[in-house]
């Protein structure tokens, strides 16, 4: 059971949160200009790294706010918690 530092409420058990999957997948500004393959890339294709993953979490049973974290998908260690809209770190994948 992960312990996640909600930026608004503090550290809470994973059970209070929902995971929104990979972060920094921006919705294309002009979907009509994309090919089917480009649209599929946005819609379905994921990096799914073994290692550091930037992902979105929502404190569903708390403040209901979304935020980003960087988490190691092997050790489950959480390396960083940051606001929605903040860019990922240079070193992140």
């Amino acid at each position: 059971m992960l312990r996640i530092e909600c930026p608004h409420c503090g550290a809470r058990d994973e059970a209070e949160f929902s995971c929104g999957g990979e972060a920094h997948i921006a919705r294309p500004k002009e979907p009509d200009k994309l090919s089917d393959a480009e649209w599929a890339d946005y819609l379905y294709m994921r990096t799914n790294p073994k290692g550091i993953l930037a992902e979105r979490w929502c404190h569903t049973f708390g403040c209901r706010r979304w935020f980003n974290i960087e988490r190691d998908t092997v050790s489950h260690e959480i390396l960083r918690v940051y606001a929605m809209g903040e860019p990922r770190r240079e070193s992140g994948t």
Binding site: E22, Y44, R46, T47, N48, P49, K50, T73
Partner: peptide, 18 residues
């Protein structure tokens, strides 16, 4: 389990989460 890792080695992404 590791399909994305191998796909990454071959230079493409997959619609997969582990």
């Amino acid at each position: 389990g590791h399909s994305s890792v191998l796909a990454d080695m071959a230079g493409f992404r997959l619609p997969i989460s582990s």
